[in-house]
């Protein structure tokens, strides 16, 4: 039971379900419902509500609109409507039951009438993010970046906005700016080894596509290697980190020892990790 509970809590807290395929979402939705029917006594109340919130978003993603509405009503009846999470859920329901413009209207009205003058920065920030997410469909990436930068002016210590800005800059091919945003993420969450590896990845792409001179390419690759090494320093068996260490060190002169170390670590991951990591590590070992 501990392992099952741990799985659902990890999925819920890491929000990895937002990246799941429909098939995985379906499996998660059914499994989580079955688990919650068991009424596990070790499940805390906060964890219970978090799982319920996850079930709401799963119902939304899986087009189970009635189920989502029922879950929202349960939350509203127990906790009231004035909460950042409930605002987010309501705007989502408006999006799917009515239209995007109804959700935008709801958020803008709430911000204008209450949140702009309130001290509730959590609701304000969350709804501003939702607003950008809803409106981004009708605008280009430059518009999204402009909105994100405006939000960063108000909330410079929110790493999620920096990460999303980095993602948008990366898709626009503006690697230098993406690097800057990721460096901000690392400053805000210094132990975020995933961000270090992502930074190394962006620097690697920058060295391959943007940097013209050999000296500049080498300097960028060295910077990428340093960041990849930082990620594996924080997480010993991090596959992406070691892959980037191997990749960048193979492109630099005099880094044979690091390359050999990376290969041996990748071999360890290929021998003893989960099925997905094993296959990926083997592929990387073959390609280097």
């Amino acid at each position: 039971m501990d392992a099952i509970r741990g799985r659902y809590i990890s999925i819920c807290t890491s929000k990895v379900y937002t990246q799941f395929s429909p098939e995985e979402l379906m499996e998660l939705n059914d499994g989580c419902k079955r688990y919650m029917q068991l009424k596990d006594p070790s499940l805390g109340q906060a964890q219970y509500f978090s799982l319920m919130e996850m079930l709401f978003y799963l119902a939304v993603y899986l087009c189970k609109d009635v189920e989502a509405q029922v879950l929202y009503n349960t939350f509203r009846d127990r906790l009231g409507e004035d909460s950042p999470r409930l605002y987010g859920m309501k705007s989502t329901l408006l999006q799917i039951n009515e239209s995007d413009s109804a959700a935008v209207e709801f958020i803008e009205k709430l911000i204008k009438e209450r949140l702009e003058v309130d001290t509730d920065s959590i609701s304000y920030l969350l709804l501003q993010k939702r607003l950008i997410a809803i409106q981004s469909k009708n605008h280009d990436k430059e518009w999204v970046v402009r909105q994100l930068l405006n939000l960063i002016e108000k909330f410079p210590i929110d790493p999620e906005i920096w990460w999303f800005a980095a993602q948008n800059y990366f898709e626009l091919g503006q690697f230098e700016r993406a690097v800057y945003c990721l460096e901000e993420v690392i400053q805000l969450t210094p132990f975020n080894y995933v961000a270090s590896a992502r930074l190394a990845e962006v620097l690697y792409y920058k060295s391959m596509r943007v940097d013209k001179s050999v000296a500049k390419t080498k300097a960028t690759l060295q910077n990428a290697l340093n960041n990849a090494l930082r990620s594996v320093e924080l997480s010993e068996n991090y596959l992406k980190g070691w892959s980037l260490v191997a990749l960048t060190s193979s492109k630099l002169d005099g880094k044979n020892k690091i390359l050999q170390l990376a290969k041996s670590k990748l071999q360890i991951i290929a021998n003893g990790s989960n099925a997905q990591n094993k296959v990926t590590a083997e592929l990387i070992l073959k390609s280097i």
């Binding site: 990895v16 990246q19 989502t92 997410a133 990460w163 997480s235 990790s273 997905q276």
Partner: peptide
Amino acid sequence: DNLIGNDPYGEINHTPNFIDIH
């Protein structure tokens, strides 16, 4: 986390608040 495929900073790195629901 690496073994089970978990990202401890997923709440940031997966940008859950910017998901396109449609």
